[in-house]
Write a protein that binds this DNA or RNA. Structure first.
Lengths: 223, 223
DNA sequence: TACAATTTAATTGTCGACAATTTTAGCGGT
DNA sequence: ACCGCTAAAATTGTCGACAATTAAATTGTA
């Protein structure tokens, strides 16, 4: 997932992004203690900027910080995970509604092409969950961007989606909902394309709810 | 609005809260440049901890920060304000739905008593918007807490509600929806009390949407 | 050996000084 | 008087060292 990088002017920003990626990708495993001295040396910087980066990570919920003790990479509980789905259902439902009203024809066109591509990918390679999951976020990302809401974009694209990626790594569950999700995506996109915000929200919420219920099933049968 | 204060152990936390309150209350007016040197001297601290506090303010959207330039208190645009309402509609709708399922009888009891009190206050003193507005947030606060969702609580109570308070100061509009809002609050509370999550969400969203449309009207006729 | 208290070590929190960047002030030319 | 350029001042970014707190190790005792 390429992230626009143009202005990593300041050290905290750059280190924040690097740490965020390392945590999400699992390079720094869940529960790991974030040692300031160690990381400062690793990145060749002072502890000041590093602390600011850690604060940002704490603010978005990727690490938990306790005064005079330090920060640890969060390890997600089932409750925490299901909670995220509920917030996504609310926010992305609204995003879909707004996208139906505000997306430009070009954006809709791009969205459709993305879906076509996902459909092919899944046929060619039914077992590969990587592209599947990555593609899933791609779709949601585009819808949120299409909503034109700065707050929704910030909350979802800058915060929640990283938690989603983290959970996918930590729980590592293969969903098998891929083909169904593709169809649901297409239905949502068509509602957006015809400007039916009400329906777009309904379908998006239903889509995320189904995803949550699926995860809920996997969690209960696995414990 | 009393905030639990038990552990303002570290300087950044304490200063963050103080600055947040000063900004929301208008003590530091909109658009004001946040001078690090000046504030550090004012609070009698070093610039390090102060910068962390400013980062937190930037993360929650109360100030805007630019590298090598500094931070300024945000001045809310109409678009920004309406955007907040849409996010609130989505999040608080979900909060009400969850609250209907998870609120304890004691919490419901407290909620009802709060509403009784608001009703009296408004009758005694129909023109006083202070208690009205303050009471409004009180109600929403209790519902969100009742949802039991850590994420919703964080997003709404720790972030968005401060922006709401800020906008109420910056725009300073007297809504006159007070009596109507009270009735809407009561309907929402009753839906929650009887465990009807679907209806609670519907009513909450309708309530916030009405509030937004009212603000929208005031904005267009005033410009 | 197990446990508790005390001392030691390691880690986080805070500070003051220096470096880099931006903004302001001053100057000369047209 | 106005505009562009240069230099100075002010502000933010970064660093290294010290203080305060917490976690670990050691010792003493039952």
């Amino acid at each position: 997932m390429a992230v626009s990088v143009e202005h990593l002017k300041t050290i905290p920003e750059r280190v924040f992004q690097q740490l965020r990626e390392a945590i999400v990708e699992g390079t720094i495993p869940a529960g790991t203690k974030i040692s300031e001295a160690e990381l400062a040396q690793t990145y060749g910087i002072s502890r000041g900027p590093l602390r600011e980066a850690i604060s940002q990570l704490a603010a978005m919920g990727l690490v938990e910080r306790r005064a005079n003790v330090g920060a640890r990479v969060i390890q997600m509980s089932s409750d925490h995970l299901l909670d995220i789905f509920r917030v996504r259902e609310a926010l992305e439902g609204m995003a879909a509604r707004l996208a139906a009203a505000k997306m430009t024809p070009e954006q809709v066109q791009t969205l459709m092409e993305t879906l076509d591509q996902h459909g092919e990918t899944i046929n060619e390679d039914a077992g590969n969950n990587y592209f599947q999951e990555s593609g899933d976020l791609d779709f949601h990302y585009q819808v949120v961007m299409g909503s034109g809401s700065d707050h929704l974009i910030k909350l979802l694209c800058n915060d929640l989606y990283y938690l989603v990626r983290l959970y996918r790594y930590q729980f590592g569950m293969r969903s098998k909902r891929g083909p169904i999700a593709i169809v649901e995506h297409r239905n949502i996109a068509e509602a957006i394309a015809r400007g039916d915000g009400e329906m777009a929200e309904l379908l998006m919420r239903s889509h995320i709810r189904a995803s949550r219920e699926n995860v809920e099933r996997l969690l209960t049968q696995q414990n």
